[in-house]
Design a protein around this nucleic acid. Structure first.
Lengths: 160, 160
DNA sequence: AACAGGATTCAGAGAATTTTGAAGCCTCTG
DNA sequence: CAGAGGCTTCAAAATTCTCTGAATCCTGTT
């Protein structure tokens, strides 16, 4: 029965492909690989040792990746009675959390525009550009937050 | 009258700060600096030489940055009758365009989830995670596109 | 309280990405 | 159609980022 093995290989491959995409958009490679390994894993949770083995990276790399992943809310430590090892798990609603965090960038953009407008006033060339920018990011900030809530609601409702 | 100079300095500083933020979220540093220089510039347009001087980078770096910025729709070549140099300009509605492009990432996420679900089925551990993921990104794809349209409409209306 | 298993840290090696600078190319101009 | 100006390209240099692996720290067990 190596049909299972083949499926596992496909799963791991899909995980690696996504990790590559994510690292191309700025995420650290080891971090992305740990994240997708947990996402595509057959297991409910994985230990640092599991991750080392599966990804062929050092314990230090795993530790660093986890350190980034936990505060962003994508991964969490799972209780594992009777085990001294930490068990990690992909967190439920991680995507909503992740997108919410990205809104911090929207804030930065708004702030930057605002900063510029303190100096120049809307009737100048940079003023016009910054005014549009501020308008855009102000709008996005508000609407994105609402959108995430809307998704959560909708998803929870669908789960019944 | 060095009040002007001081304001210029503040403007450039704000530009550099934003460039730094952007480079921290994955954009190439020179690219980010060119972009913010154009955004915060007092001038309507800038030439490659202007950018070299202001940012203290090589012509090659400017050329490379522009090469990235133009296809993404953030910057455009501006007609400049009587000048042999190319003039670059921050594009109107660049933000909406930019965010639209980022939706390509949402597509990738949806695809990755879909890929995994082809292998495992929703009743497994990875299946449940991937199902939520697919649901989330499918939702976001649709709603984000709508949101950008809504902003454009609203902004155009406000301009009258 | 000493030990053992495991997580974390961090300096240094190594890899990958960026930038430079100069050569080459293209396009206007006279 | 020769020359000048300016843009692009690209190999090499520089910088930056990332990973490793060993030392250290922490925590629960005997």
């Amino acid at each position: 029965m190596d049909e299972m093995d083949e499926k596992d290989a496909q799963l791991r491959e899909a995980a690696e492909r996504l990790a590559l995409t994510l690292s191309e958009s700025g995420m650290q490679k080891a971090t992305a690989r740990v994240m997708t390994a947990l996402l595509f894993s057959r297991h409910e949770t994985m230990t640092a040792a599991d991750l080392c083995q599966e990804l062929q990276i050092s314990t230090g790399a795993v530790s660093g990746a986890v350190k980034q992943l936990i505060p962003t809310g994508i991964v969490e430590r799972a209780p594992a009675p009777g085990s001294r090892r930490d068990h990690y798990r992909f967190r439920e609603h991680a995507w909503a959390t992740l997108m919410g965090k990205q809104n911090a960038l929207l804030d930065s953009m708004w702030d930057a525009a605002s900063e510029g407008l303190k100096v120049v006033g809307k009737d100048s060339a940079p003023g016009r550009r910054l005014d549009e920018m501020q308008h855009f990011y102000g709008f996005m900030q508000r609407e994105m937050a609402a959108l995430i809530d809307k998704w959560l609601e909708q998803y929870e409702a669908g789960q019944d």
